[in-house]
């Protein structure tokens, strides 16, 4: 059985280590926070906050307290606030240990495309280009194939890039693949999925 969204998030959480400062993207990456267990993880929200807490109780929403997805959130006892230049200073400066992000396409060289589809409405890259260029480790969580059943892991990305050679680990519904200087490797298969299944579903070369 391939992993579902929550199982992919749970697998991504295994990559996070005690003491890490981490940035989680929108969608499945947000679910990773539910699976960090006892690990001491500090979440960054790139609009200017370290130590992001859960959604507020109804009635406790504060318009001055939102995450990068513009959702109302809460603070924790460890929380600190800062301006956007400082926030991206810590991202660009490599102080954030890891980012977990969604993707439209990833190439076998670790190129990432997740911000724009030509001909479709372009909303902007937000902080994605800064994050992938700056953080210590970029972990992509996405379905292995698109809604047409085509591989999202490609020899070359076809969409405009968010970053070149930036992805370190890909977690899909089928398994876990690592990108290093030699290429793409299968690290782990989801239960009931074989390496051959992953190879068959992947357009990119797997070493």
């Amino acid at each position: 059985m391939p992993w579902d969204r929550n199982q992919m998030a749970e697998r991504a959480a295994q990559e996070l280590e005690d003491g890490m400062y981490v940035n989680l993207g929108i969608g499945i990456p947000t679910l990773v926070a539910n699976y960090v267990g006892d690990k001491d993880i500090t979440l960054q929200s790139e609009n200017g906050m370290l130590g992001m807490g859960p959604f507020p109780f109804e009635g406790d929403e504060d318009p001055d307290l939102i995450n990068a997805g513009k959702q109302t959130i809460t603070e924790l006892s460890r929380t600190s606030y800062f301006d956007s230049a400082t926030s991206f200073g810590m991202i660009r400066g490599g102080k954030i240990a890891a980012a977990v992000l969604g993707a439209m396409e990833v190439s076998e060289k670790g190129d990432l495309a997740n911000w724009m589809i030509p001909g479709k409405l372009v909303k902007g890259m937000g902080g994605a280009m800064d994050l992938v260029a700056g953080v210590g480790r970029v972990i992509v969580v996405m379905d292995h194939t698109n809604k047409h059943g085509e591989s999202k892991i490609l020899k070359e990305c076809t969409l405009p890039l968010t970053g070149k050679g930036v992805v370190d680990l890909i977690i899909t519904n089928l398994g876990v693949l690592e990108v290093d200087h030699k290429g793409l490797h299968i690290v782990e298969c989801a239960p009931g999925v074989t390496k051959d299944d992953i190879r068959a579903a992947t357009e990119a070369n797997i070493v």
Binding site: E46, D83, S84, A85, S87, F88, G89, I91, R92, D111, M125, G126, G127, M129, D130, A133, G134, P160, L161, T162, G163, K164, G165
Partner: peptide
């Protein structure tokens, strides 16, 4: 986003330009 924030900060600090790896290859 970080480039925009830093462009503002830099302008305010009298810095006309800076190098960043954000966006390289895009």
């Amino acid at each position: 986003q970080g480039t925009l924030a830093e462009r503002m900060r830099a302008g305010g600090c009298g810095i006309p330009g800076f190098y960043t790896k954000t966006g390289v290859g895009t």
